Each structure stands twice: as structure tokens, then as C-alpha cells.
Simulated scan of single mutants.
Amino acid sequence: MKAELRGIVKAIAGGRPAASREAILSRLGILAQGHVQQEITALRSPPNAPSTIRQKGSSNPLIHTGAMRAAVTFQLGESEGGGLLSSVSRSTLRVGL
């Protein structure tokens, strides 16, 4: 993942045309989305109580139905401040152009 992120940063810093920048930012959004979803899946602390595990059938403290993990998405859009990451709203990562 670090190597892919380095490649994305180099491409952005290299002054690519707008269409190429959009493709690069899409790659970055997909990478960030996958990383957040992976962290939600991998989290094990603090552990669920045994009664909670019996009730929901999972020891992962952030997963009950999987809806939260599935709701993590990214969206390309114009950034008000000109920054790369314009905002995080609900479960959507907004990546500015």
C-alpha cells in the first residue's frame, strides 16, 4: 500500500493534466476507502463482552451487520479550500479536484 501511495503522490506532484489528476485522485479514493474498510474489519480492541458476541455473533466491536463498513465510500468533488481532502461527512471521503 505504501508503494502505491508513493506513486499516487508522485503523479499528483508531477503536474499531470486534469483528466489524469482525476484518475489519480480516484485511485487515491479507492485506496483510502479500502484501507478504512480493512481497519474496521481488523479492529479487535476493545473486545466485545461475551454476551455481546453471543447476541450479534461476532467478536469485532465495529461489525454487527456490516452496514457501516459497506457505507464507507469516496466521492470526487471540488474542494472549497483547494485541499486534497475537502471533508469527511458521514461515511463518505470527499477528495477535492
Rank of each mutant, 00 (worst) to 15 (best):
A32Q: 05
I40F: 06
A67D: 08
R44D: 05
K2N: 11
L62M: 09
R6A: 10
Q75S: 10
T73S: 07
A13I: 15
I40G: 00
L25C: 05
F74Q: 01
G81D: 11
L85T: 05
S79H: 04
R44V: 09
L85H: 03
G66N: 00
L28H: 00
Q55N: 12
L43W: 09
R6P: 03
A71T: 06
I8R: 01
T52L: 09
S59M: 05
A18P: 10
E22G: 05
G29T: 06
V72R: 02
R16Q: 13
Q38Y: 11
F74W: 13
P47N: 00
A3R: 15
S79C: 02
Q37E: 08
R90P: 01
V9Q: 09
Q37G: 04
A42P: 02
S87C: 07
G81E: 07
L31T: 03
N60L: 05
G77V: 13
G7N: 12
V9F: 12
E80G: 11
T65N: 04
A18W: 13
R6D: 13
K2M: 13
L25M: 14
S79T: 09
V88P: 05
R21L: 15
I63L: 11
R54L: 14
L43E: 08
Q37H: 06
S51R: 12
I40N: 00
S51T: 11
P46C: 03
H64N: 14
I24A: 02
P61I: 09
L85A: 09
A18R: 14
M68C: 06
G15N: 09
L28W: 03
E80Q: 14
A3I: 13
Q38D: 09
L5I: 13
G14T: 08
R16Y: 12
M1N: 08
N48A: 04
L84G: 01
G82E: 02
V88T: 08
R90V: 06
P17M: 04
A23I: 13
R94W: 11
G96E: 01
I8T: 02
T41V: 10
S58L: 07
H35I: 10
G34F: 07
I63M: 07
I8M: 06
N60Y: 00
I12D: 04
S45E: 12
T41C: 07
A23D: 08
T92G: 00
M68W: 10
S89W: 08
I12L: 15
T73G: 03
T92C: 04
A70R: 15
L43N: 06
L93M: 11
L5V: 11
A18D: 09
H35G: 04
M1V: 14
P50F: 02
L76T: 01
G83K: 14
P47E: 04
H64W: 11
P17C: 04
I40Q: 02
P61T: 07
G34N: 09
S86F: 04
I8K: 02
T92F: 02
E39W: 12
Q38G: 08
L28I: 08
